[in-house]
């Protein structure tokens, strides 16, 4: 099993898993406690519109996708802040529209073979060194922003109305949160794919939330859960020659349902 580390691509995959876990622990915690899982799903799918746009215009993919997702995030921040009654419907519309927009643009782009599968499932086994550095930079930025505005994020997540009355700029923090979600998702999708991003954003924070006493503790715990799932998933995929992303999700899902079962029996 140790020979797994002798391959460059495997070392890179592990590193990518670790770096993605840090980002997902931080962002996923905010996503779960603010109940914006659906919004995160919407942003990540709509991001494909940015990919399509980049190919159609012949521009570099990453900057265009980041800019596109930020636009979608800002739009969603506008509809989800405050009056939330119909917000989920609008999110659903943006979700579908972004994805369809991307696919149509891909159709219109001659000579390019549409690679939707790699957007959905990523390719953690072929992560280049440069992407690792990019993700390390993203992690650093996320830790810095969340640490700086920690009390504001805590107050907003716990009770936005009360936080607003205390003079916390909740609207700005809400927008900042969705923008962080957008940027993180775009960066991580390149590495591990859309489906794994959603799994890492939701399952570890859910497991980490129970019985916790601080938001920071929940972020740390969910990052650790992510690391655990990534390592064991990659090991399984290596041992049984399975798709890496799906193996990681399988481990996380089994753990999730097992813990649900245990919780049900205890209650």
């Amino acid at each position: 099993m140790i020979d797994i580390l002798s391959y460059d691509f495997m070392r890179n995959a592990l590193m990518a898993g670790l770096l993605a876990s840090v980002a997902c622990g931080i962002i996923g915690t905010l996503v779960v406690v603010n109940r914006v899982v659906f919004v995160a799903g919407g942003i990540s799918h709509a991001a494909y519109g940015g990919v399509g746009l980049a190919f159609f215009l012949g521009l570099p993919v990453l900057p265009v996708t980041v800019a596109f997702s930020l636009g979608v995030a800002a739009l969603m921040a506008k509809v989800t802040f405050g009056k939330r009654e119909r917000a989920d419907t609008v999110v659903g519309v943006l979700w579908a529209a972004g994805m369809a927009f991307g696919i149509i643009l891909m159709d219109l782009t001659h000579g390019y073979n549409v690679d939707l599968m790699s957007f959905l499932f990523g390719s953690i086994l072929s992560v280049p060194q440069s992407d690792l550095w990019l993700m390390a930079g993203l992690d650093t930025l996320l830790v810095a922003v969340v640490a700086f505005a920690y009390r504001g994020f805590l107050a907003m997540s716990f009770d936005p109305e009360f936080a607003g009355l205390r003079g916390v700029p909740v609207k700005l923090l809400h927008l900042a949160m969705l923008c962080m979600i957008a940027v993180s998702i775009v960066m991580i999708i390149r590495v591990v794919g859309l489906i794994l991003v959603i799994a890492l954003l939701t399952i570890p924070p859910y497991l980490a939330e129970r019985g916790g006493r601080s938001l920071g503790g929940m972020m740390t715990a969910s990052a650790l859960y992510s690391v655990l799932f990534c390592l064991s998933g990659l090991a399984l995929s290596y041992a049984f020659d399975l798709t890496s992303g799906a193996s990681i999700i399988a481990v996380a899902t089994v753990w999730f349902f097992a813990s649900q079962g245990l919780k049900g029996r205890r209650a």
Partner: peptide
């Protein structure tokens, strides 16, 4: 289920901008 301690909850009343 929000992960917060009792003291931290009370502290939120002292928040400012």
């Amino acid at each position: 289920d929000f992960p917060i301690s009792v003291l931290q909850t009370a502290l939120l009343g002292r928040l400012n901008s």
